[in-house]
Simulated assay, not measured.
Amino acid sequence: MNTRAQQLQAFERLLDIMDDLREKCPWDKKQTLESLRHLTIEETYELGDAILDNDLPEIKKELGDLLLHIVFYAKIGSETNDFDIADVANSICDKLIDRHPHIYGDVVVENEEQVKQNWEKLKLKEGRTSVLEGVPKSLPALVK
């Protein structure tokens, strides 16, 4: 496995490549949040298929494709000064810390079931009336 330094170096390499592509490639320059959306959905389904097939090399490839999309969206967000990859990463870090008071706070849990119960309470405390509130309207009904 790679060291943390190698992992960060690989991520920086991806950010540098995205900068180059956005500046120099006619197709990449043209892309918008909306134009990438259907491609991201397709990549997500491809990852799902690879997981169901337990095809680890394919899972790695599809995770890379999705990571590219995340970096691409963040690059577009940075160009409009709305958000960048650091904002995206910090946002999920803050959410993970908030949702895991048994790790980052003083809540004590005995098992996975108590973690789930706390998670549902936290979701409702965020102002949601149901744990399903916030589920994407475009998500297929079967998945919901």
Rank of each mutant, 00 (worst) to 15 (best):
R13Q: 15
I85H: 00
R22M: 05
D84K: 03
L63P: 04
R37G: 13
R128P: 04
K29R: 15
V115I: 15
V71N: 05
E126N: 05
N2A: 14
E79F: 05
G105R: 06
V143Q: 00
D65H: 08
A5L: 15
V143A: 06
H38P: 07
L96C: 04
K61P: 06
I41S: 02
S138C: 12
Q6W: 04
N2G: 09
I51K: 01
E120K: 13
H69A: 13
E79H: 04
I51R: 07
W119E: 13
G64A: 03
F72P: 06
K95N: 11
Q114R: 06
D19A: 14
Q114L: 08
I97Q: 03
H69G: 11
G127F: 05
M18R: 11
A74P: 00
N111L: 07
D28T: 09
D84V: 09
L14D: 02
V71M: 04
K30G: 13
E34R: 12
N81F: 13
L52F: 12
E110T: 14
R128T: 06
Q117W: 06
W119F: 14
K24W: 07
K60P: 05
P26L: 04
I103Q: 04
K24I: 11
P140Y: 05
H102S: 10
D19F: 11
C25F: 07
D94E: 13
A5C: 09
F11W: 08
S130H: 07
I17V: 15
K95P: 05
E133V: 06
K60M: 13
D49Y: 09
V109K: 03
I59Y: 00
K95F: 10
N90W: 11
L63S: 00
N81I: 10
